[in-house]
């Protein structure tokens, strides 16, 4: 079963409408052979975690360009913890100031990808770090 595709949820939390980056990343991951679920805009932390659970995703990419990345990521991480999910690879992308990236990593975010990141770097990171898929 080693060739099962990696499953990724790309999510847009809150009211931020900037989805160019999220869509480009989603497409590059799909082209790289991953199974990608894009939530669309206006997601609450609850709906994001629900999608992750429903899809049994290994990776969650949160895209934020509205300055509310800390608040939403914290809320998502809290909910994940409440659901006992500890092996999800959580990534954040968007306009994230350097010092916020440090704080996000302290929260358990595996990596933060800023503007100008080649999509190949994101693909590579996910392949190297995505947890093995769990089967029941």
């Amino acid at each position: 079963m080693a060739d099962m595709p990696i499953k990724v949820v790309v999510a847009k939390p809150g009211l931020d409408g900037h989805d160019r980056g999220a869509k480009v990343v989603a497409r590059s991951l799909r082209d790289a052979g991953m199974e990608v679920v894009y939530t669309g805009v206006f997601q609450s932390p609850e709906s994001i975690v629900k999608t992750v659970l429903q899809e049994d995703a290994q990776v969650l990419g949160i895209s934020s360009l509205s300055g509310a990345h800390m608040e939403y990521t914290e809320a998502v991480k809290d909910l994940l913890e409440q659901h006992g999910i500890d092996d999800l690879l959580v990534l954040v992308g968007g306009t994230i100031p350097d010092e916020d990236a440090v704080q996000l990593k302290q929260l358990g975010v595996a990596e933060v990808f800023g503007p100008g990141t080649p999509t190949a770097a994101i693909v590579e990171f996910i392949r190297a770090n995505a947890p093995a898929r769990t089967f029941s």
Binding site: G14, L15, S44, S66, G67, A68, Y72
Partner: peptide, 15 residues
């Protein structure tokens, strides 16, 4: 939405 919205208060005054 108003600024006391249960979800979106996180974005009040941000951008």
């Amino acid at each position: 939405h108003d600024s006391d919205h249960p979800v979106y208060h996180r974005e009040v005054g941000k951008i």
